[in-house]
Amino acid sequence: MSLVFDIALCALILGVAAMALLGRGLFASLAFFIVYGLLIALAWLSLNAIDVALAEAAIGAGVTGVLLIGAWQALNAQSALDPDPVAHWITRVFAGLGCLAIGGLLALAILAMPGGTGLTTEVIDTQGQLDLGNSVTAVLLGFRAYDTLLESIVLLAALVAVWSLTPQGLWGGIPGPRHRTRPDGVMASFGRLLPPAGLIAGVYLVWAGSDAPGGAFQAGTVLAAAWILAVLAGLQDEPEVTSPLLRAALLIGPALFLLVGAVGAGFGGFLAYPEGFEKPVILAIEYALALSIAATLALLVAGPPRRPGGAR
């Protein structure tokens, strides 16, 4: 039964991906893409990779879709959605053959792989030293904390890069449009009801992350979604990009992480946690990171400043 379910899911995933990539109409493609993210999250559930499923559900299906809807909106306003050309048939034939060859070689390589569960035993044997029950968190914030530090910086770099696109004269302004809603409408009610739920879910996901699936990135995404919801519902406006409070929220996670790494470098080694205090330090980093990730993601979705600041 399980295998039948898996086969059906895989077939759906491939079909939806094909529709998103090859169909006509960009809006339909975006709708398919959001469905695609959801199905991929289900695939991770079926593989019992719950942490990844959470990340995919929050980021892949949620935020990425919303980002692309934003780009669609901007292009629609500029009438830049058309043309959406398909390559000449000769190109298509060659591209098809090339991709078939690559897919075939990949399949052969996959069939030749040794299998097994890799480093699972090593991780489980070692994670006790960090006092963490969740193996994925142990890898993310323990064994490969350096990757995670760089990753949090990558996210911040993307925001700086987005800000570098600010139109002339609008630096220091407010990102995105000011949203309007009917005060007693569905949208405004959404904006009042959901953010508190998101807040609780976010805090829960960080707290759960040390022993059960969850963690800073998933939590940060849920928090960001709550923030953006409040903005979309017109209840709250985005801050000015030069706001000191905003800067503090953006920087606190990566800065704390880097500080812990630097202190470690001073005493034992880069990113070595103080002995006996591993878990509290990791938790502190996770909470700070969740906050920074939430702020960064929310502003990434909002885009570069669009309105002059100081005019509210």
């Binding site: 990779a49 942490d51 990844v52 990340a55 480093l119 699972t120 890898v139 490969r144 995670t148």
Partner: peptide, 11 residues
């Protein structure tokens, strides 16, 4: 599922 790829995939 091996937790190392899981963590790297999240990254």
């Amino acid at each position: 599922t091996d937790p190392v790829p899981q963590a790297l995939i999240i990254t």
